[in-house]
């Protein structure tokens, strides 16, 4: 079974009509109906790996509408309400935590500029919004790239090469260190753009290509198990939650001849 809400438990104060609505949606009938709908839609969506068909098209379009609507509602409640509407109209916030903040009118206007794109001749206004948004985020990202990506990787790449080998384990360590050192450097050489990949550079960049290919292959093989787990999860839903373990079990027994 999928995650039923525990909200009934967590939230104490529900209005009577909310309570009856909640009871309705958690009633056995609605859960059974839900399971059947879920199973049906699961089959619809799976059908597309065979080929495009009306059932998948139905599911796909339904999914598109529902997800867009759901995420927009969620965005409204989680973001627009506390970050735009409450600061403008603090009396709406029953908790009383928000104070009047007219500064949010600035992003409001910048946001309106985007909607003005619908009016011919006003579209250029949205450029101001883009500049504000992209400029700001680029400024935020630049130090983060250095701090979180470039320097740590750099730091990790520079490492001692344990050249004193006296035992098998130490030999392994030496090989590991060399593989990491040569691999990372050769991949970097592969990414040289302003130099022709011939001669020495060409040779090193070939090593880089091989390193990349091994990395890609390994990463691919590593992911298979996780993806198969997902399919197993879905199959278990279809076979046990929907059809029911009883029935499936009986089929199994039937085939076993027992």
């Amino acid at each position: 079974m999928l995650n039923l809400a525990i909200l009934l438990q967590a939230e104490s104060e529900l209005l009577p009509w909310q309570q009856s609505m909640a009871d309705f949606f958690f009633s056995d009938g609605m859960v059974t109906l839900g399971t059947w709908i879920a199973a049906g839609l699961t089959l619809f969506m799976f059908s597309f790996v065979y080929k495009d068909n009306p059932l998948f098209r139905f599911g796909e379009h339904l999914y598109l509408g529902i997800s867009a609507g759901y995420l927009m509602s969620l965005y409204f409640f989680n973001n627009m309400k506390p970050k735009f509407f409450y600061p403008l109209m603090p009396f709406l916030d029953v908790s009383g935590d928000t104070t009047l903040n007219l500064w949010v009118l600035i992003p409001g206007i910048l946001g309106l500029f985007i909607i003005f794109r619908l009016i011919p001749g006003w579209g250029w206004l949205s450029r101001i919004t883009f500049a504000f948004y992209i400029g700001g985020f680029t400024g935020i990202t630049l130090p983060k790239v250095l701090n979180g990506l470039l320097l740590p990787q750099f730091y990790a790449t520079i490492d001692r090469i344990p050249y004193m080998v006296t035992s098998w384990d130490e030999l392994v360590l030496l090989i590991n260190a060399l593989v990491l050192f040569v691999g990372a450097l050769s991949v970097l050489v592969y990414f040289f753009f302003s130099v022709e990949h011939r001669g020495f550079v060409g040779g090193v960049s070939r090593v880089g290509i091989y390193t990349l290919m091994i990395a890609f292959g390994a990463s691919f093989g590593y992911t298979i198990m996780a993806r198969v787990s997902l399919l197993i999860g879905r199959m278990q839903f279809l076979m046990f939650d929907w059809i029911g373990e009883e029935i499936v079990g009986r089929i199994a027994v039937l085939f076993h001849g027992g």
């Binding site: 999928l2 839609l41 999914y63 759901y70």
Partner: peptide
Amino acid sequence: WEYQWMFVPMQATMFATLAFFI
């Protein structure tokens, strides 16, 4: 309710198709 019984299963199914594709 719709999220629970429509959105989530379709999402999980699309994700699970990856097993075939991989």
